[in-house]
Amino acid sequence: MVGLKPSDVPPTPGVKFLGAGAAACIADLVTFPLDTAKVRLQIQGEAQTTEAVKYKGVLGTILTLVKTEGPRSLYSGLHAGLQRQMSFASIRIGLYDAAKQFYNNGRETAGIGSRILAGCTTGGLAVIVAQPTDVVKVRLQAQSNLSGAKPRYTGTFHAYKTIVSEEGTRGLWKGTAPNVTRNAIVNSAELVTYDLIKENLLKYNLLTDNLPCHFVSAFGAGFCTTVVASPVDVVKTRYMNSPPGQYTSAPKCAWTMFMREGLTAFYKGFVPSFLRLGSWNIVMFVSYEQLKRAMMRSRSTINCTTESSL
Score class of each variant (00 low, 15 high):
residue 175 G to Q: 03
residue 174 K to A: 08
residue 188 S to V: 02
residue 33 P to R: 04
residue 35 D to S: 15
residue 13 P to T: 06
residue 203 K to M: 08
residue 300 S to H: 07
residue 83 Q to H: 08
residue 301 T to Y: 05
residue 234 V to N: 07
residue 44 Q to D: 04
residue 207 L to H: 04
residue 70 G to C: 09
residue 145 N to R: 10
residue 77 G to M: 06
residue 98 A to I: 13
residue 177 A to E: 08
residue 186 V to I: 10
residue 46 E to C: 13
residue 65 L to M: 07
residue 162 T to N: 07
residue 10 P to C: 04
residue 243 P to G: 12
residue 147 S to W: 01
residue 302 I to D: 07
residue 222 G to E: 14
residue 227 V to H: 03
residue 143 Q to D: 11
residue 28 D to N: 11
residue 133 T to S: 13
residue 71 P to H: 11
residue 40 R to P: 06
residue 88 F to P: 09
residue 287 S to K: 00
residue 48 Q to P: 12
residue 308 S to I: 12
residue 309 S to W: 15
residue 5 K to N: 15
residue 153 Y to E: 06
residue 174 K to C: 08
residue 247 Y to A: 00
residue 32 F to D: 02
residue 184 A to C: 15
residue 156 T to R: 05
residue 152 R to N: 14
residue 251 P to G: 02
residue 181 T to E: 15
residue 20 A to Y: 01
residue 123 G to A: 03
residue 298 S to A: 15
residue 60 G to P: 12
residue 106 G to E: 02
residue 218 A to T: 06
residue 208 T to L: 15
residue 49 T to W: 00
residue 150 K to F: 11
residue 13 P to E: 03
residue 170 R to K: 12
residue 218 A to D: 09
residue 144 S to Q: 09
residue 264 T to G: 14
residue 298 S to M: 09
residue 176 T to P: 00
residue 115 R to K: 12
residue 284 M to C: 09
residue 74 L to T: 04
residue 237 T to Q: 07
residue 230 S to W: 10
residue 265 A to R: 15
residue 194 Y to G: 05
residue 282 I to A: 05
residue 278 G to M: 01
residue 143 Q to N: 11
residue 83 Q to C: 14
residue 25 C to Y: 00
residue 35 D to L: 15
residue 283 V to D: 01
residue 284 M to Y: 04
residue 70 G to N: 10
residue 51 E to A: 15
residue 12 T to G: 05
residue 44 Q to I: 03
residue 74 L to V: 03
residue 141 Q to D: 05
residue 226 T to K: 01
residue 31 T to C: 10
residue 298 S to K: 11
residue 151 P to Q: 05
residue 272 P to L: 04
residue 72 R to D: 07
residue 73 S to R: 13
residue 131 Q to P: 05
residue 177 A to R: 07
residue 192 V to I: 05
residue 91 I to Q: 06
residue 204 Y to P: 02
residue 204 Y to R: 09
residue 17 F to N: 11
residue 102 F to A: 06
residue 157 F to N: 10
residue 34 L to W: 05
residue 300 S to A: 15
residue 303 N to V: 14
residue 184 A to R: 12
residue 223 F to W: 10
residue 258 F to P: 03
residue 112 I to C: 11
residue 172 L to Q: 02
